[in-house]
Amino acid sequence: MDELIDVLDDNGNPTGETIMKFEAHKNGVFHPTVHIWFYTKTGKVLIQQRGKDKDTFPLLWDVSVAGHIGAGEGVLDSAIREVEEEIGITISENDLQKVGLFKSVQKHHETLIDCEYHHTFLCELKIPLNGLKKQDSEVEALDLIPLTKFAEETWGLANISKYVPHGPAYYKTIIKAIKEKL
């Protein structure tokens, strides 16, 4: 689904312009997104398998919840909305713990260049996996895996081809942030 999004400069600053998401991806224009990583107090992390019809990285495992920030939408409002849409639970601003802002450039092909700044958060998952309601158009599957296995497969590079290639430094930051919460 195409939507209007805010344009950012190369340093992640808003330019005051808006553009359709399709145009941003076609022309490699920077724009903001949200990433929300859910973890449990028992040391597990929620991962999402991307839908089979996604333009980028179909069927690879990825962040628990992610999405584009709509034009004029606040970062926290976007995070709350995306969580509701993708896994069917309601959270509040107080549930989100900021991890950082990550610059990402992924050139998929000549007319699909993802240039994004990921506003990244942690959130404790307080309900069982079977209590989540995945958005079928976006999410193929959800899984809770031990943080140690997640670390081995991403940061340890044991099974990196299973995941969206955010890079070892990104995954290392996420893993360390979750460990601090346990």
Score class of each variant (00 low, 15 high):
108 H>G: 05
31 H>N: 07
65 V>G: 01
36 I>Y: 05
165 P>Y: 01
36 I>D: 04
140 E>R: 06
131 G>D: 08
91 I>L: 13
145 I>Y: 01
94 N>F: 08
142 L>H: 00
97 Q>H: 11
162 K>Q: 12
57 F>K: 06
49 Q>D: 04
116 E>I: 04
6 D>V: 05
111 T>E: 12
63 V>L: 00
179 K>F: 12
23 E>L: 15
47 I>M: 13
86 E>S: 01
3 E>H: 05
87 I>Y: 05
44 K>Q: 15
175 I>F: 08
61 W>C: 00
127 I>Q: 14
12 G>Q: 00
80 I>M: 10
98 K>P: 12
102 F>E: 01
45 V>T: 13
40 T>W: 02
95 D>R: 03
161 S>T: 14
90 T>G: 08
145 I>A: 05
169 A>D: 15
118 H>D: 10
19 I>Y: 04
165 P>S: 06
71 A>T: 02
119 H>V: 09
63 V>F: 00
71 A>F: 03
96 L>F: 04
41 K>C: 05
55 D>E: 12
172 K>M: 08
101 L>D: 07
85 E>S: 12
121 F>A: 04
125 L>R: 04
92 S>I: 06
138 E>N: 04
110 E>Y: 10
28 G>L: 02
170 Y>G: 08
66 A>Y: 15
44 K>H: 14
53 D>L: 14
19 I>G: 03
108 H>V: 13
13 N>L: 12
56 T>G: 10
35 H>D: 11
29 V>T: 15
179 K>N: 10
75 V>Y: 06
115 C>T: 14
98 K>C: 06
95 D>L: 02
52 K>Q: 11
84 E>H: 13
132 L>W: 01
16 G>P: 15
68 H>G: 13
91 I>Q: 09
7 V>H: 02
9 D>S: 06
8 L>A: 06
114 D>S: 13
59 L>D: 07
73 E>A: 00
177 A>L: 00
148 T>W: 05
145 I>P: 11
107 K>D: 12
60 L>S: 11
15 T>R: 03
124 E>D: 07
72 G>W: 05
123 C>T: 10
67 G>W: 03
143 D>P: 03
100 G>P: 10
